[in-house]
Design a protein around this nucleic acid. Structure first.
Length: 632
DNA sequence: AAGTTGGTCTGAGTCCACGA
DNA sequence: TCGTGGACTCAGACCAACTT
């Protein structure tokens, strides 16, 4: 395809000689409007020029192709002096050229001829050659008979030289095709003149080095110093180790990371393997990281969840992330087409429907998490020098946050229809404080007014049966609303963490030695608000103490999935809401305190955020009246 | 029939440390 | 002060066997 476009006949040299179009001229000079006595270039027709009575086809290459290195013009001799024949041939040529351009543009966008990838391939070529040379020097003397080896190498060099002269680029394939394939490139790319030329030259360079090393028995690392450094390889044995595969990099990153991070690394690792295949990690370059992240960006929210495995040993099904994207894309495209076709609908209405009905994708914020995890994988393989914080943007393999941000803006633009309607949506979570109505509905729910079943707490009490069970489900929402502690903080509290301090009943959050806290800042002492005391919190704790309990909420195992029971209950009570979830109760308290004019520092101390020093983290004294003012 | 539960998996937010 | 990276926590979907 490229072949019939690139060799552009007589054009390149003569392009400079031909008169350039005056300002405002489009395409070629031939498009210039007729002005004054000047001979119109369009005398013969579109893209037609006549020189020495022979007609030529002459057309400017589109900017998009020129920026990839194409010359200004395509000029081809039409090999005729007859105008009508020239017009016919020119029309045929034009349609061919335009078709070729189209597919070429697609190709360029699909796999940009990426110089960084080619450099990686050449580097691998060098590395392998050096490994062979060193292995030969260290091998048993009887194996390597120098004479045939030398002549074999010279023969190879001769062959390469001949191929270079004949411009037979396919010769490069046996040398670099396999490496290209392993690096995730199309082996045919190696046969492109620009690439093959470099490959063949390098092969000869390496062969020359082999010959001289074979004869002089110099250390290849020393003798080939320039070649190594020229390809970014240090002159050490260490640097010649085979490149790490993506799968190995994932394993390495996982062993280095803590548990929770490991699961995320495995997620993005699985995606990367599906996207790149198991190629050497060093073969990935910046532009491909962008493509990969774009793929992740298009993942539908909730991908990979419908696998069907559960605790009953169900086998479930294997899901392919790429397929899930494809499916979502198809559905979205159908919806977009359908809505665009509704002539009667106004633009805002169309937007509303699209936002509601399009399949939500990952949020922008989460893509940064994915980026960070991908970063860890590549850092495990390439080291901090290639993948670190303080690297120039153009040297990066994984884009920096800023780079990704910029690129994401472009992606967003591309996901807008011509009339500005969205073709891709996401649903970020925005927590809001609970409305008073919501809180009061919770407090009037069967949890506090009594249930008819001891286990199914959402069932309303009947005349005969009325249970009010004071356990985690009863106290945790109250404590969260009035004190703003995190669920995991209150759930791991021990009975003796509740005690008097200066005659005020307080809870010592994070007092347990082995308590697992979000941060040191969350270690704090909070007074028990009056509301809880009125509800009998003190008596309840005393009863626990007498019963010899250690934990405040023994029914909640520390390693259990916490909070799900409560969440489930809220759901059946129809108290669940996307924005006003359990965790949002912390925010509720904070905003209520703010309305009462309490300064930020104190609020942060109550919530256990960074701010207060160790000394003033104990603010139980004197602050208690504030809590009495909190109306729920 | 509606609700509970505990497996699996991913989604996404918060907070903190560090260094330019 | 801000960008970056890291760690941690919680949210939520799906699923099938149980309970009520």
């Amino acid at each position: 395809m490229k072949k019939h476009i690139l060799p552009n006949g007589i054009a390149v040299n003569q392009a400079a000689i031909l008169p350039s179009p005056p300002t405002g001229g489009s395409q070629t000079g031939s498009h210039r409007p007729v002005r004054g006595s000047r001979v119109s270039g369009r005398k013969w027709g579109l893209h037609l020029v006549r020189r020495n009575s022979i007609f030529y086809f002459r057309r400017r290459w589109p900017e998009k192709i020129r920026c990839f290195g194409a010359p200004e013009f395509l000029s081809v001799s039409l090999r005729t002096q007859i105008l009508s024949e020239a017009v016919k041939r020119s029309a045929a040529l034009l349609s061919d050229v335009e078709a070729g351009e189209k597919s070429m543009l697609m190709e360029l966008q699909d796999t940009p001829v990426n110089s960084a990838r080619i450099q990686e391939m050449l580097k691998e070529l060098v590395r392998q050659a050096f490994v062979r040379m060193i292995a030969r020097q260290e091998s048993d003397l009887t194996i390597g008979n120098p004479a045939p080896y030398l002549s074999q190498i010279s023969a190879e060099s001769d062959r390469v030289r001949a191929a270079q002269k004949a411009r037979d680029w396919s010769v490069a394939l046996p040398f670099a095709g396999e490496i290209a394939r392993k690096n995730g490139m199309d082996p045919d790319d190696v046969a492109a003149p620009a690439v093959a030329r470099q490959v063949l030259a390098l092969i000869r360079q390496l062969n020359d080095l082999s010959l001289s090393v074979e004869q002089s028995f110099d250390d290849p690392l020393n003798a080939g110093r320039e070649i190594l450094l020229g390809h970014g390889i240090a002159t050490t044995r260490e640097a010649l180790k085979p490149p790490m595969l993506l799968s190995e990099a994932i394993e390495k990153a996982c062993t280095e990371a803590p548990g929770d991070v490991e699961t995320k690394i495995r997620v993005i690792g699985k995606l990367a393997l599906a996207f790149f295949g198991d190629i050497p990690a060093s073969a990935i370059v910046l532009e491909q990281s962008f493509e990969f992240l774009h793929m992740a960006w298009m993942l539908p929210k909730g991908w990979g969840k419908a696998h069907g495995c559960n605790r009953h040993g169900q086998l479930g099904i294997e899901l392919c992330a790429l397929d899930e994207i494809q499916e979502a894309d198809v559905i979205d495209a159908k919806l977009v087409a359908e809505i665009m076709g509704l002539d009667t609908m106004s633009i805002p209405d169309k937007r509303r429907r699209l936002v509601q009905e399009l399949k939500p994708r990952l949020t922008d914020g989460y893509l940064f998490v994915q980026r960070d995890m991908f970063n860890r994988i590549l850092r495990a393989a390439l080291g901090k020098k290639r993948v670190g914080r303080d690297i120039d943007d153009e040297d990066r393999v994984v884009p920096s946050h800023a780079q990704l941000n910029n690129r994401m803006r472009a992606w967003h633009k591309a996901q807008k229809s011509p009339c500005g309607l969205p073709m891709r949506v996401s649903r970020p979570k925005r927590r809001m404080s609970w409305s008073l109505e919501h809180v009061s509905r919770l407090l009037r729910s069967p949890i506090y007014f009594g249930t008819s079943s001891q286990t199914q707490r959402s069932r309303k009490a009947t005349a005969q049966k009325r249970y009010i069970i004071r356990d985690a489900i009863y106290w945790v929402p109250l404590i969260m609303i009035t004190m703003g502690v995190r669920p995991e903080e209150i759930l791991q509290a021990a009975v003796k963490d509740i005690s008097r301090r200066d005659s005020i009943l307080c809870i010592y959050v994070g007092n347990e030695e082995d308590a697992h806290l979000k941060s040191e800042q969350s270690r704090r002492i909070l007074p028990i608000p009056q509301i809880l005391l009125d509800l009998g919190f003190r008596e309840w704790v005393v009863a626990k103490l007498k019963a010899g309990e250690t934990w405040l909420f023994p029914e909640i195992q520390p390693d259990q999935v916490r909070g799900r029971r409560l969440r489930n209950l809220l759901k059946t009570l129809k108290l669940n809401s996307d924005r006003e979830d359990i965790y949002a109760m912390r925010r509720t308290l904070s905003s209520k305190l703010m309305q009462l004019g309490i300064d930020t520092g104190t609020r942060q101390k109550i919530l256990g955020h960074l701010e207060g020093t160790t000394v003033d983290r104990h603010y139980s004294d004197g602050n208690r009246p504030l809590f009495n003012g909190v109306h729920l």
